[in-house]
Design a protein around this nucleic acid. Sequence first.
DNA 1: TCCATGTTTCTATTATTCTAGAAACGTTTA
DNA 2: TAAACGTTTCTAGAATAATAGAAACATGGA
Lengths: 110, 110
Amino acid sequence: MEIREAVQRLGALAHETRLSVFRLLVRRGPLGLPAGEIAARMGISPPNASFHLAELARVGLVTAKRDGRSVIYSVDFAASLGLVDYLKENCCAEEAEPVVPLNSITRRKK
Amino acid sequence: MEIREAVQRLGALAHETRLSVFRLLVRRGPLGLPAGEIAARMGISPPNASFHLAELARVGLVTAKRDGRSVIYSVDFAASLGLVDYLKENCCAEEAEPVVPLNSITRRKK
DNA sequence: TCCATGTTTCTATTATTCTAGAAACGTTTA
DNA sequence: TAAACGTTTCTAGAATAATAGAAACATGGA
């Protein structure tokens, strides 16, 4: 995953309402939930839910499909796992290669 | 980890400069790097680096300690791992318990 | 076709975040 | 103590994100 994509997805989850929505959808699994029910469960207005769901969809963490009058949102688990893997690899690998030539950038007089 | 904390840490990483700084520090490991060298490596001004480092420190992802004139920043690996674990548990557990009583919230006429 | 339902888009407002540059602060060395 | 260095804080401005409510859009059923 590229850093831009990671930043966008992290940003999408970096909001309490959106993270809660996302967790709800994860628990729900592949079935997904209609937008209106998500709004009701979260206690937010349908426009607000739509706004946040659109952001989650924009960055690829959830997908939407219409079913009659409803729009069913569900998690894209591959994308979600991809983000977790990115963090694991880039943010917790303590024993990775050292950052090399310290003095090549800030030249300090010995 | 509580959701508030997760949101704050996700938000701290949801910025290209900060995520790059964080990755640099992860690669550097426990030794850490002084603020000025971080700024030089990232190609940003010292005040801007300080601003982003302060945010990373505020949410607990990095720690700072003074060493002479320099301030050395290094990753808090426990906190970082905690965030990754939070995501793994809450965002990828496809087979978790189902979201239960669908009709108790939005009552639809059968 | 008309109406009800579910959802999204639009508009306006407020709040937050980011950046740049100047100034201030703390530490070391002369 | 004065000067230099490394870093942070402050100030102001610009950009971005979030919320509410009204309006518009899409679908299904009478």
